[in-house]
Design a protein around this nucleic acid. Sequence first.
DNA 1: TAATAAGTTGCTATATTTAGAAACTTTTTC
DNA 2: GAAAAAGTTTCTAAATATAGCAACTTATTA
Lengths: 103, 103
Amino acid sequence: MKKTTLAEMKDLYIGKEGTPERDSYEYELKMEILGRMIKSARIERKMTQEELGKLIGVQKSQISKLESSANSATIDTIMKVFRALKAEINFNVKIEDNFVKLT
Amino acid sequence: MKKTTLAEMKDLYIGKEGTPERDSYEYELKMEILGRMIKSARIERKMTQEELGKLIGVQKSQISKLESSANSATIDTIMKVFRALKAEINFNVKIEDNFVKLT
DNA sequence: TAATAAGTTGCTATATTTAGAAACTTTTTC
DNA sequence: GAAAAAGTTTCTAAATATAGCAACTTATTA
């Protein structure tokens, strides 16, 4: 039985099909990572910044600024972009060891 | 073998201990839900809006506005709040059936 | 390597968020 | 039910994000 690091485990499972739970690979909420995610999703869609911008109704320079996290975007903007990319963006919150449940 | 709906399954597992994967309960990124999460986390910490505000350096009215999603907050603000609550906030992005990987 | 496409940066203006203060409403506690 | 605490709302000002445009740099490709 071969031992694997957590990093190796992640590499193995990210991108693979499976249960929704297994597919949940999480990133800390940060503008820098969000920007990289936008870029990754756009490239996966084989779009240019200009094409993505056109979908949302902004110029390519706006997309560039979002991807390079020139500033802290609003939730609305982030939602708009991922919707245009037909990508789902989800989040979750943990407090201590437990989840924060909606009430 | 008893049949359960997806909703019942979620009710069963949310908040329970287990693997990181099972613990990942996701919400669509929306200001409305983020506001409710802030409130839930604050209440779990047994804080008032004023106390949370003091931690961040804003007045209670700001916290009220965030919790009621009066407007679309910036990523920076969301991060600040959850950090003050000592809560983790993570996100993930899916495109088609696959994850968007950072490159 | 020249031409074109794609992406970035600086500037400006506008829109929106952040924030405080105070009045107000709702909830809690005595 | 009165008093106190907690939360909401409205108004205002300041900070920041959004956005376009044009010039610039970096890739791509012919």
